[in-house]
């Protein structure tokens, strides 16, 4: 799975870099071998900064973006969502981002159909119908992002992509048709910049939150009261893939 995502990512980055990096070297000049780098140690400075005159400046900038996402461990509701991010970078290292995700309607057929047919066949729970449970609608999170690592990488030796790696920590609410539930999430994000303002953004988060228990025993006896569902805590595994712009 990871390999697959990585391959797509690299392909995307490569294609982007080729299109947006028109400046490919014009002159081929041999550099004397004795002048090539031989040491991996760093020069010493009074102020130990790794980079000066950053190409990607985030401090005091607004960031907006859009994404598509999945909750890979959601068995009943649709796993997919779309949404947008908007936030403010207080410093080069610290940002507060709002993350709004609209969960796509429907159910996770991969599991719900199987569960329903199995319970019907076994006659253990003939009335089980996941279509009757209250819909999962949207989530809103306030995340603090620590831009812990800023770096750059060469892409196919023809261009350079800058990147940010950042831990995410936040609180949020998830709205079901009947009720709103709190939760917390944490994870790791990575941005690959294709220009000084435009980046591909990938966030991976674990989301621990309260929600509806879809296996409510009450609805075996006909159409259930939407408010009769009990609550439960779940741990979701969220992956979001999107783009972001610094304004």
């Amino acid at each position: 799975m990871k390999k697959w995502i990585f391959s797509i990512l690299m392909a995307m980055i490569s294609s982007f870099m080729v299109t947006i990096s028109p400046e490919i070297a014009k002159a081929q000049v041999e550099v004397p071998e004795e002048e090539l780098a031989r040491e991996s140690v760093l020069p010493r400075f009074e102020r130990g900064e790794a980079v000066k005159n950053r190409a990607i400046v985030t401090e005091k900038k607004v960031e907006i973006g859009a994404f598509g996402g999945w909750n890979f461990t959601e068995p009943i509701y649709s796993q997919a969502k779309i949404g947008f991010n908007a936030g403010y970078h207080f410093t080069e290292e610290s940002a507060l981002m709002l993350n709004f995700g609209l969960w796509l309607p429907g159910r996770n057929k991969q599991y719900t159909d199987a569960i329903q047919s199995q319970t019907k066949a076994n006659n253990t729970d003939p009335g089980l119908d996941f279509n009757l449970i209250p819909d999962l609608q949207y989530s809103l999170w306030a995340n603090w992002e620590l831009l812990a690592y800023y770096g750059k990488m060469s892409v196919t030796k023809q261009g350079v992509s800058h990147m940010h790696l950042y831990p995410i920590l936040g609180l949020g609410m998830t709205k079901y048709a009947t009720k709103m539930y709190p939760g917390l999430n944490f994870g790791l994000g990575q941005k690959f910049y294709f220009s000084k303002a435009f980046a591909l953004r990938i966030d991976f988060k674990l989301q621990y939150q309260q929600g509806i228990n879809p296996f409510n025993p009450g609805f075996r006896t006909g159409v259930p009261d939407p408010n009769s569902y009990s609550d439960r805590f779940t741990l979701g595994t969220i992956l979001e893939l999107g783009v972001s712009f610094l304004l």
Partner: peptide, 25 residues
């Protein structure tokens, strides 16, 4: 025009100091 492979874009990295090569003519 002068720099290639890791084109210099105005950003300075500490690990690149001493490794710049001017390739202009």
């Amino acid at each position: 025009n002068g720099y290639e492979y890791w084109p210099f874009d105005g950003e300075y990295w500490i690990d690149e100091l001493g490794n710049y090569h001017y390739l202009g003519k």
